[in-house]
Design a protein around this nucleic acid. Sequence first.
DNA 1: GCCAACGTTGGC
DNA 2: GCCAACGTTGGC
Length: 140
Amino acid sequence: MAYWLFKSEAEVWSWDQQVAKAEEGEEWNGVRNYQARNNMRAMKIGDRGFFYHSRAEKEVVGIVEVCAEAHPDSTTDDLRWECVDIKAVRPFATPVTLAMCKQDPRLSDMVLVNNSRLSVQPVTEAEWAVLCELGNTDPT
DNA sequence: GCCAACGTTGGC
DNA sequence: GCCAACGTTGGC
């Protein structure tokens, strides 16, 4: 299983909205960046991801699971753009802020720390464990 | 709200 | 195919 990180501005699509979708899940649409799209194409059902609020909050707030593999993005007719569906798994007991990630030497190579622009990122298994530890949350 | 970093577009 | 111009993202 692979691990990922999904970024969203809370004003646009928030964790609470994601939770409200429950088992139905929701398209992670609107991505117009090749690197982010390629990451979504690589995802398999059951892969886990962090849900990150960018801009205002700048913190990881929960864990999501991929529940549909890459398919055309319904918000455009442009066939270049695809997206996966994700559903909320559980919230972080303690949200992990970007500042906390930057402080932890174990996360110094994390994409979130080094490439703030990429909206869908890979996360290593080691980084996954550290983030869940910082968030006091079950990593499974 | 500002602006640096980055990605994309389009003229040549 | 290069690169300047432009638009967007997201940390600060």
